[in-house]
Design a protein around this nucleic acid. Structure first.
Lengths: 340, 340
DNA sequence: ATAGTCAGTGTAATCGTTTTCAGTTATTAG
DNA sequence: CTAATAACTGAAAACGATTACACTGACTAT
């Protein structure tokens, strides 16, 4: 059943049927009624691909995620999807499973005009390529970002967030503060490391390179790196961890060494995933407005697709340090420091 | 840059260019080389929508999920996506956010030929409609299912899994076993309830209706319903819970009442999400092969799309009872029972 | 009365591929 | 040498919608 069939049944031209569906204000009331009756009667649905072909707009956007099973990204994704659907867009999911090559594969969909735009929740690609891409197609980077990259981006200020998190530990009296980073090849990890260092330096605390360990975002890596830190001659009394998953691994390691959080070791995480407030002890963590980041990213993308003016190309969302039970009090800190 | 442009540059007809890309075996080696050179030189990418339009196949499938942020579904989704991409398909994500109307909206994409097939991870729709749909379009139901529905389905045997889980508690010596169900309007909840009842009856245990409470899949509902159970004059000593999220809520409630898991209350969850083995205590839970369910569902869908013969329309995957620390031992059970 | 405007409709071109059909040349068999 | 076959290529139609343009008739302003 196609448009011309409907047209015949309604005794009008295909153009009129099309107008009824796309520009109803151009059609007389009676004709509209006549056409709609036929449409309902035969249950006609316009052929999406034919329409896309003719109009050169797919009403599809592509979202590239490094890991769809992550509690963090799935929340961002939901924000994107929600806005997308409410604006008549569909979302193609591109899970790279943390694989750089698959990132490039998905970008092909843009070249092939399969999607009207793309949101990247991961950016391991070449900076120059990304900028070039952004000139050709609507593109938004969210969560991850790149230094000095001229591409619309929405994220939090990771450096300052990390600084705040570290300073929270410093204010509790800790001086031996370690940091377990994310994979150091992603900017996010480097920035959080930078924030950590800034906080340490500005409070005249020594940065012991043994106190900086690189993880890979997983619970297990948090666990393993924490065991390393605890094996040091002078172990830290506090750890700032790249994300909540790893932070939970850290706490597990502490417990397995017959130590306690927060009494012996204070832990700060990052992301504020749902689990962080269910976990015992509740994580002290930096909350990212995940859903809002997704929403904002989609809105930014829509502006580009509709070639509207953008006021700002870099949106910095507000974060918030959520105080849980994983850091304890000042006296905890002091006692812990005295022990060794 | 379109195919005809490439054709001109290579001094061949558009048909030949098309053949180079789609049926290279039909083209002479030299021509192929000549065309490929031009394609690479001008970086030509075929227009996906035009191709879809012409071939009547979008190479897109639609996955409808009730909640993308759920640890369970996102894992299934990954299984689907993995197979899909490796077979050249893209996945449109349809998050219904547990909203029945949105389920129907997504189905429209099939009518509009936006996708070649659909996998439903939720099935709240009318049974008759689903069967009708399944006759018209490639369709697979996964995880959720329906009694006597003639639609290809992949899932575990929820009744027997629930029975096994309950029997585990019975074998530990528990007799006062409660069950916190999922939303009772979904079959999954009803089936797990049925399995629970079967186990109780076949071991001559009384089913106290006060011991059956309905939750809504969330951590909080687990928490709240458990508080209710604990407030009973004769509270249960063991609870079988609809899913892991809720089970963690249950454990939180137990702790907040100054009781212990598993010493005072044994808890069994369902799904074996990642958190369940990180949680303290580790959850005893029924593991669903999430990734494999997704994989299998996609394979089943592909068979339909390619109109291959299917041996079985109902695939039942193997589950496994994972023993954690949330149920304790026989002596725990007996002591707990004696207390009241 | 005439020209101009406007609402409503139809005709036909168009989007970029794929594929059928027919045609050409080269090769082989008889 | 002829006919049949094979290997390759090109011309043109087709997929189903949207829209520019042209047209008609009704109405308005002069």
């Amino acid at each position: 059943m196609k448009m011309s069939d409907v047209a015949k049944l309604a005794n009008v031209s295909p153009a009129t049927v099309s107008r009824v569906l796309c520009h109803p204000e151009l059609v007389s009331k009676e004709t509209k009624q006549k056409v709609m009756d036929v449409i309902n009667q035969v249950n006609y649905k316009p052929h999406a691909v034919a329409r896309q072909f003719r109009t050169k707009a797919t009403k599809i956007i592509l979202v590239v995620v490094p890991d769809i099973t992550s509690a963090f990204f799935s929340e961002v994704l939901r924000g994107i999807e929600h806005v997308a659907v409410s604006c008549g867009y569909q979302v193609i999911l591109g899970d790279t499973e943390n694989n750089i090559e698959r990132e490039a594969e998905y970008i092909n969909l843009l070249f092939q005009k399969q999607a009207d735009g793309m949101i990247l929740l991961t950016a391991r690609l070449d900076k120059y390529k990304l900028e070039e891409l952004s000139e050709q197609y609507p593109l938004v980077l969210a969560c991850e970002y790149m230094d000095g990259l001229n591409v619309p981006t929405v994220s939090i200020d990771n450096i300052s967030s990390a600084r705040k998190a570290t300073e929270h530990l410093i204010q509790l009296g800790h001086t031996r503060i370690a940091h377990i980073t994310g994979p150091i090849n992603i900017v996010l990890s480097r920035d959080r490391l930078r924030g950590y260092k800034q906080a340490m330096i500005s409070h005249d605390l020594e940065i012991d390179s043994a106190y900086i360990q690189e993880g890979d975002q997983t619970f297990d890596s948090g666990y393993n790196q924490m065991l390393k830190l605890l094996a040091l001659e002078t172990p830290p009394t506090a750890v700032f961890v790249f994300n909540d998953d790893m932070a939970m691994g850290v706490i597990k390691a502490v417990k397995d060494c017959h130590l306690n959080v927060p009494e012996d070791i204070a832990v700060v995480g990052f992301d504020h995933i749902k689990m962080s407030s269910i976990h015992e002890p509740n994580l002290t963590t930096v909350a990212q407005p995940k859903y809002e980041i997704g929403k904002k990213a989609m809105e930014l993308l829509l502006k580009q697709i509709n070639s509207e003016q953008m006021l700002k190309k870099k949106i910095v969302m507000k974060d918030e340090l959520i105080i849980g039970d994983s850091c304890g009090s000042k006296s905890n800190a002091l006692k812990a420091l005295e022990r060794i």
